[in-house]
Design a protein around this nucleic acid. Structure first.
Lengths: 196, 196
DNA sequence: TCACAAATATACTAAAAAGTATATTTTATC
DNA sequence: GATAAAATATACTTTTTAGTATATTTGTGA
């Protein structure tokens, strides 16, 4: 069983995740987190060294949450095609994202670009890992005869993620989900062109 | 001729553009801008009502700069295909972006999502306008016989922007330009599939 | 080139945010 | 259920950032 302190720390992190995702690392502040958790400074600083430490762990959790969720969704697909389709369908609603405020992987990637080198490392790792996994999945589809050799797994894995992530941002700012649906349909068709 | 004040204001805005693009709206602060311009508070506050006013005008300029630049690049293409290719080639270097720190349209879109409703409106307008222009361009290509009816201009215009913008972010965080080149090649091939 | 208004600099205040010292409460173990 | 240690709350200080009042300088038209 988790100790009280461990539960409190987890609670702080979980409460802070959507705040950070919505307001960004620089935009989020300690007081926002205290307000949301109804805890106090003394408590928060008992669990974290300071804002940087909190930020790092919050982003860490957000990245882990969304990565795990995507993996779980992909896992549901029976075939490789089914898994890729499941991946795409995960992105179909740009407004009710798994964590409120859009995709934390991308949101973070944009913010940490020049600032926050530590966090940048973490996001890079998550994205690289995702690319490897998707690429391996597509390669498996070629190996097991689902897809033809005409499919370039590395390129298509990148195209998949870049376009859906970009699509989410665009749809959110334009306040319409429609283009996302067209995009997902188009990507599914593109994959189907390589089905043997 | 521009008056001294007009030139100073323009100088402040132009100097602030990369700062805002690199550090974000919440991350950028007045002192950063004063430091970079070597000007003083009195001067800056003579030209802007406050940080919000400055932020708004800086983002406005950044959006205008990059939009104009993209239009100019696209304009160079002789055929519609040439114009689309020129658009894609604009994004080929994720590190030396036209404005330092990545694409300001996208960077801004991510940040303003929940906060800054005024600026969100502006970004939305820019993105919608871009989509309209790209869609019209593709439609023109269909009309003039360059492309077949199999091309869906609305969907492809969205796919183009979403993927290259997403690609930029991913490449920047992973610190490799290679996937961007694969993506652009893939998008060019996708367009060429519809050439009659 | 003088005058004066516009532009800019200086030196402050105000507000917001982070961080800390210490008191109080709670939890877990005996 | 008493107690010590851990967890949390309170009440501060410090730092950072935004904003302002006023003095000084500079550009520009008469």
């Amino acid at each position: 069983m988790l100790t009280k302190a461990e539960r409190t720390k987890q609670f702080i992190l979980e409460t802070a995740v959507p705040i950070y995702n919505e307001k960004g690392i620089a935009g989020a502040n300690i007081d926002d987190v205290l307000e949301a958790t109804k805890l106090t400074k003394g408590c928060l600083y008992g669990h974290f060294e300071g804002k940087d430490d909190l930020s790092e762990q919050v982003i860490d959790l957000a990245l882990k949450m969304v990565s795990d969720k995507i993996r779980a969704e992909v896992y549901k697909g029976k075939t490789i095609k089914g898994k890729i389709f499941a991946f795409l369908d995960f992105y179909k609603n740009p407004f009710e994202t798994y964590i409120s405020g859009g995709c934390p992987i991308f949101n973070t990637a944009v913010q940490v670009d020049d600032n926050y080198p530590f966090i940048k490392e973490k996001v890079a790792k998550v994205i690289k890992m995702g690319q490897q996994e998707l690429t391996a999945l597509l390669q498996e589809g070629i190996n097991n005869g689902e897809f033809s050799e005409t499919l370039d797994p590395v390129v298509f894995a990148f195209k998949l993620v870049a376009s859906v992530e970009g699509g989410i941002v665009m749809c959110r700012v334009m306040e319409t989900a429609k283009p996302m649906h067209g995009l997902i349909k188009s990507l599914k068709m593109e994959l189907e062109q390589h089905i043997v």
